[in-house]
Simulated assay, not measured.
Amino acid sequence: MLHKFLLSLACALTLSACATSPTGRSQFIYMPDTQINQMGLQAFDNLKSEKALSNNSRYIQFADCVAEALVHEVGGDWEVVVFQDDSLNAFALPGNKIGVHSGLIDLVDNQDQLAAVIGHEIGHVMARHSNERMSQETAVNTGIALIQAVSAPETALGQSAIGLLGIGAQYGIILPYSRTHESEADIIGLELMAKAGFDPRHSITLWQKMDAAGNGQAPAEFLSTHPSHDTRIEDLNKHMPKALKDYQQALSIGKQPRCSK
């Protein structure tokens, strides 16, 4: 009897945890979004208190301008912070938080290239990738400990919990998103930047610049856990016709961001 009850309970939880991503992919998600968002808020507060913030007003205005145009398509109130960090990185956390490293702004040539990265990171949040990964982790471990641990980032468990959100040890990446998540964020970001009035063709240029930043050695940090260069370009080109239509439609209704680096 108990065995049947537990089996029925497991089945019910599995069914209730079924979700669909913006691209139509089936997901296993059962963690409350309110808890995941709270973890994101706490993690972002930790970052702002422990990492150096950029005081470059041009960089801050540039990042704010690009992010504002993108999140206008998503809705909600988002906070954008530029961190003084030479690494080629950016991230978005549940709870509508966006972090951009100054090194990434140094690298990009224009607003469209920065939009490709920030759009990709917003794509992770839109697709609830942190929740999906946390749900998978807590399906075999205790979720309460992980949720509480995010407020203690100096501990090993705290780093693991923060890593599930997409950032980790020394605020790099220790528990990277899967290639499925990364590819999905690429496509969501491509569509998002196009609808916001950014030229989606620059996404390919951006990833090529990121790849070249490795100088033939190890790939740039941002790319280290992403699909291969050729796979990414192939996927972006496959979705480019639709993105260009979205882009032309955005221009036709006056969506023309003017963000200067």
Rank of each mutant, 00 (worst) to 15 (best):
H3I: 15
H3P: 01
H3Q: 14
H3D: 15
H3Y: 13
H3W: 10
H3T: 15
H3L: 15
K4P: 00
K4A: 09
K4L: 08
K4R: 11
K4D: 13
F5G: 00
F5Y: 13
F5S: 10
L6M: 14
L6I: 14
L6R: 12
L6F: 15
L6D: 06
L7N: 06
L7S: 10
L7D: 09
L7V: 13
L7C: 03
S8N: 12
S8T: 13
S8P: 02
S8V: 09
S8M: 10
S8F: 05
L9K: 09
L9G: 06
L9R: 08
L9W: 10
L9M: 11
A10L: 13
A10G: 08
A10V: 13
A10D: 01
A10E: 05
A10C: 09
A10K: 08
C11D: 04
C11S: 10
A12L: 15
A12V: 14
A12I: 15
A12N: 07
L13T: 06
L13Q: 04
L13A: 03
L13R: 00
L13K: 02
L13G: 04
T14F: 11
T14P: 00
T14A: 11
T14R: 02
T14M: 09
T14K: 02
L15I: 15
L15C: 09
L15K: 04
S16P: 00
S16L: 14
S16G: 03
A17H: 04
A17M: 04
A17D: 04
A17E: 05
A17L: 09
A17I: 07
A17Y: 05
C18Y: 12
C18Q: 10
C18N: 03
C18R: 07
C18G: 10
A19K: 08
A19Y: 00
A19G: 11
A19F: 01
A19V: 08
A19W: 03
A19E: 08
T20F: 08
T20R: 05
S21M: 10
S21F: 07
P22V: 04
P22E: 09
P22F: 01
P22T: 06
P22W: 05
T23N: 04
T23K: 13
T23V: 10
G24Y: 02
G24K: 05
G24P: 05
G24T: 06
G24L: 01
R25Q: 09
R25E: 07
R25G: 00
R25A: 03
S26C: 04
S26T: 13
S26G: 01
S26W: 15
S26F: 14
Q27P: 01
Q27I: 02
Q27S: 11
Q27F: 01
Q27N: 09
Q27W: 00
F28H: 07
F28Q: 04
F28K: 03
F28W: 10
F28S: 07
F28T: 06
F28M: 07
I29S: 02
I29E: 12
I29T: 08
I29A: 01
I29L: 11
I29R: 14
I29W: 02
Y30K: 02
Y30F: 15
Y30Q: 03
Y30H: 08
M31C: 07
M31D: 00
M31W: 11
M31P: 01
P32L: 06
P32N: 05
P32M: 03
P32W: 07
P32V: 03
D33F: 00
D33Q: 12
D33Y: 00
D33S: 07
D33K: 08
